[in-house]
Structures are given as C-alpha cells and as structure tokens.
C-alpha cells in the first residue's frame, strides 16, 4: 500500500478488547503528515478505543488488551523496547471534556508537561507557553490573566487551554476525541479555525460525531461501524460519493 509508506502514523491490523468484548476489529489506517484525518461513525463503534490505541492509552484501562502494530515513522510503538511514556510525548491527546489541572493557573497548565518532565529552563518554558497559547489561538484572550486559575476560563477557552497544554510538549501528532462536542457553536468554530492553522505543524486525527465538522476540517475521513473500518478515503469522496451503502446511510443521517 502506497498510503502506509508515506504515513507518519499507521495502524496495522489493530484489534482492541475490554475484557472479552472486542471493541476494535482488525483496523488498518494511516495518515499522511500535515493532514487531518476524521473518524466518524455511530456512538459505540470503537472510534475512541481506536484513537487510544494510537498512543497506547488503551492499555491504561484495567482488563484491556490490544493486538496489531502501530507504526510511527516506521517504528512499531508496541514493540517491547518502546516506552509508552515516550510514545505519548510524541503523540498527544485532547479529550472530549475540557479538563484543566484544577489547582494550576493558565500558564502553569500549559507548562505542566514541560515542568514535570524536567530539563527545561525557565525562559524556555515561558517561550513555549506563549508559543503554545498562540498556536491554540488563546494568547490574546489570556495574556493578561496567565496567573488566573485555568478553571476560571470559559468552556471554549478551557478546551483551547487543553489544546495548548498538549501542544506545549511539541507532539508531532495530535489525537482529538470529540473536542468540540461539549462546546457552543462559536467556541466550536474557533477550534475548527485553529485546527486548519495547526495542521501546518502537526498531524491531526479527530473523532467527531458532527458530519459538517468532518467535512469542513478534514482531508481524509474514515467511517467506523461496530468496531470495523467500513470505508476510508478523501473527505470529499466519502461525503459526495461513498462506495459503501452503510457509509451513505450514515452520512445522509438514515441511522446512527
């Protein structure tokens, strides 16, 4: 496959279990650098689980396991000599619900990954915090309240703060699990805008239940159904001329 060879991250035959329940079934899927891949599908079809397999977060839940390979720049992140901690510092994650660290200020939140990892000078941290906040399109709004508690920001700002927090450690890939599903349309729009800017420097894989959002922001779209990958292709093609009937049904809103 030509796609896999150029992909910055590619899953190969990934399956994932919760106990004996197989939530992801034999999925192979890759993204090219600088592209946005959207994962769509009805709820419970394994999008989040698949996403969490891509930075080894799935294994942090008790009684789970996975099979298959995930090649990040050609190297399998599941091979025995790879430290999951190192994997996650290259492949960051933003969650559905904004969750700033509660006892930390805006600046401390963004700096948390760097501070706790250690080895960064104060000025380096400061410039990275500003850089990350700018990339998350939040700098102008918070530059005068960097010391305010992170939780004092509005919902949309908190989510962008979480994006900044993930960006500060400078991952090459950002996994986003329904990052706007809890936000109002204006905040959602702002995050969509910043994603088109972001994809110049990071590759993004985003789970979304919002068809329009997937159509607006992604280059590639993958449609999941009951743990399986049904169809994957250019976003335009998936939305305008899907090859599979299930995809068409889902996109036209006939189920899901």
């Amino acid at each position: 496959m030509q796609k896999v060879s150029t992909a910055v991250i590619a899953a190969e035959n990934i399956s994932a279990w919760y106990g004996s329940n197989r939530a992801v079934i034999d999925i192979s899927l890759g993204v090219n650098p600088g592209e946005v891949l959207a994962l769509i599908g009805p709820s419970g079809c394994g999008k989040s689980t698949f996403l969490r397999c891509l930075n080894r977060m799935h294994e942090e839940i008790d009684h789970t396991r996975s099979e298959g390979r995930v090649l990040y720049k050609g190297e399998d992140i599941y091979s025995d000599d790879v430290d999951p901690v190192a994997v996650r510092s290259c492949i960051g994650m933003v969650f559905q619900k904004a969750n700033p660290f509660p006892t930390m200020s805006v600046a401390e939140n963004v700096a948390a990954g760097l501070r706790l990892r250690g080895g960064f000078s104060r000025s380096e941290i400061e410039s990275r915090v500003e850089g990350a906040l700018r990339k998350a399109a939040l700098w102008e709004e918070v530059k005068n309240k960097l010391r305010a508690p992170g939780t004092s920001l509005s919902g949309g700002q908190q989510q962008r703060l979480c994006i900044a927090r993930a960006l500060a450690v400078q991952p090459e890939i950002l996994l986003m699990d329904e990052p706007t599903s809890a936000l109002d349309p204006i905040s959602t729009g702002r995050i969509e805008e910043l994603m088109t800017e972001l994809k110049k420097s990071v590759t993004i894989i985003i789970v979304t239940h919002n068809m329009q959002q997937a159509a607006r922001i992604s280059d590639q779209t993958a449609f999941f159904l009951m743990g399986k990958l049904v169809e994957h292709g250019n976003t335009e093609q998936i939305f305008n001329s899907p090859t599979r009937e299930e995809t068409e049904n889902y996109i036209s809103g006939r189920f899901g």
Partner: peptide
Amino acid sequence: QLRESGLALGLPRWKVLLRLIMR
C-alpha cells in the same frame, strides 16, 4: 480524566500521581 490527561502528556505514572493528582 485528570490522570489520563497527565499520562497523555507523556508523563510517567508516578509523576502523574505524585505531582498532579496529589496536587
């Protein structure tokens, strides 16, 4: 969620527990 956010930043579990969760 807080534990997961810490882990997703590429921090080892013991740091997440001692420096994020305890805090």
